[in-house]
Amino acid sequence: MVQSEMGEIEDKNGKSDAEMNMYLSSAVEAGALLLMYGAEVSRVEDTIMRLCVAHGFSGAEVFTITSSIVVTASCSDGRKLTQTKRIRMHVNDFGRVEKINALSRKLCAGDIDPKVFRRAIVRVRNSRGAPPLLNMCMYMIISASLSVFFGGTWADGAAAAISGIVLFAMVRMSEILRMNSMIQAMVCSAVTALAVLILVRIGIGSQPDKIMIGNIMLVIPGIQLTSSLRDMINGDTVSGLLSMSDAVLKAVCVALGFALVIIALGG
């Protein structure tokens, strides 16, 4: 047992800086994808640590906050390599989180070798997301069900489904135009509020606030607020504070968008 481990370490010792750097970058890339697609900070740190050990490093120091990853890995001959990764986009896509999780589990168990792992990670990163039509249907269903959930009537639910389409179109458009996320939240909620008020004037649905709550759940960062508190209790105070202030700012923007239209039109 000990003999074979020693042999492996000696084998890895012979590898050049360039090769070790490549191994480290695939570990960091996997961690970055996990963070981008909604995994917790503590899990990302743990995964990068395990991946570094599985790639033949003797140890790694990982520091992760919601917007960046810093890893310093040490080789068994005393060399140290450092890489930093900046994360700008956050999307919840747990399908990809699961895929990366399964891949890194396989790598740590020794079922696949680092080259295959690297290629598979790139494939997960480049894979296509869900079809827009499916997402639009989900926006409709979420809006309708949550507006009834918060006390709307069935007619309010129907109105929420229609304004959910408007919201989806706005979100999609601002994604294509690469809008700033705060401006995006404000514009999307303003247009949706306008749609809701028009629907109520026409006669579909009667309580504009209950209709809007269904739509609000899709844009307001309630999940982010809850998970930021969870991070803080968990000991990742910096990440928690960062994502909490982001969530609060975004919530202000959403409320500003809705409120401007409501005050202007007197809904």
Binding site: F150, I213, I216, M217, I220, P221, G222, I223, L225, T226, A251, V252, V254, A255, L256, F258, A259
Partner: peptide, 13 residues
Amino acid sequence: IPGGDLYYTMYYL
């Protein structure tokens, strides 16, 4: 998830 209450907080602000 307290999304509705978060909205009312910011709305009153």
